[in-house]
């Protein structure tokens, strides 16, 4: 947990140091692609695989509800 918080802080600091580019909306065609998500285009199979993991493994959560805004919509 602590490491993630440090990373999140680092992301913001990197932005201040210019290591993160200011990407304009018209430059986001690559970022808007389905292939830039772990699920790809087949969200049904992705949901099934998550159900498989949920049914067979003891860990839960972290499935991706948070994050994901690329400013493409």
């Amino acid at each position: 947990m602590g490491r993630l918080l440090m990373l999140s802080t680092l992301i913001f600091l990197l932005g201040g140091c210019g290591m993160i580019q200011d990407v304009k909306p018209w430059e986001k065609d690559q970022l808007a692609k389905e292939t830039l998500t772990p699920a790809g285009s087949d969200t049904n199979l992705h949901a099934f695989r998550k159900h498989l993991y949920f049914s067979k493994e003891a860990s839960k959560g972290g499935g991706g509800v948070a994050g994901g805004g690329c400013g493409c919509n």
Binding site: L5, I11, Q21, L31, G61, V65, G68
Partner: peptide, 24 residues
């Protein structure tokens, strides 16, 4: 009950990074 908070940062025109914390 599940709760999750996440941060997404576009790094450049080709890449982005997401980090999240979750609680069940």
């Amino acid at each position: 009950i599940n709760a999750e908070i996440g941060l997404t940062q576009i790094l450049d025109t080709q890449s982005l990074i997401k980090a999240s914390l979750f609680y069940n």
